[in-house]
């Protein structure tokens, strides 16, 4: 490595050789061993600029900002399912109620007077429960 190249690298990548491109480090180390005083002066000059840049501190993360951000993170799958399981469950309940109604209706198509009044009461009770549940959550 030429001294010019060493200076160019220090100018660009700073005073820490460890942060230079890996392919250049070995040759740089050889030059540093050959001309230690000169190389140290070049690195110290680059290091002065590094130190000056470090004085410009980054904004600090507040706890409130972190909390706001975390609140928007993806939710666990189980929690996401709750959102659509409730309407699906209500739909299933409604379908079951309708099926029960059809079944009961078929059974009472040739009614005896006493039986008809019992099944009517059953259909009314089941349907009323399901529809009231649906209405509350809809």
């Amino acid at each position: 490595m030429t001294p010019d190249r060493f200076e160019t690298l220090a100018e660009a990548w700073g005073g820490e050789v460890a942060r230079w491109p890996a392919a250049e480090r070995e040759a740089a180390a050889t030059l540093m061993a050959e001309q230690p005083a000169w190389a140290s002066a070049i690195l110290a000059r680059a290091g002065d600029l590094d130190a000056a840049l470090d004085v410009f501190a980054a904004p600090r993360a507040s706890g409130a900002l972190a909390e706001r951000i975390v609140a928007g993170a993806p939710k666990p799958r189980a929690a996401r399912w709750v959102g659509w399981l409730i309407p699906v469950g209500m739909g299933a309940g409604l379908a079951a109620a309708c099926a029960a109604g059809v079944l009961v209706g078929a059974q009472v198509s040739a009614p005896a007077a006493g039986a008809a009044s019992d099944t009517d009461a059953l259909v009314t009770a089941v349907s009323a429960d399901d529809f009231s549940l649906y209405d509350e959550d809809a």
Binding site: A58, A61, V70, A73, P76
Partner: peptide, 25 residues
């Protein structure tokens, strides 16, 4: 995070928020 693990979300925020503030700042 993709699976909705809240602890992972917090860890990712702790790891990346300072870097993002440093970059954008």
């Amino acid at each position: 995070v993709a699976r909705g693990d809240p602890a992972a979300a917090r860890s990712l925020v702790a790891r990346k928020l300072p870097r993002l503030l440093s970059l954008a700042g």
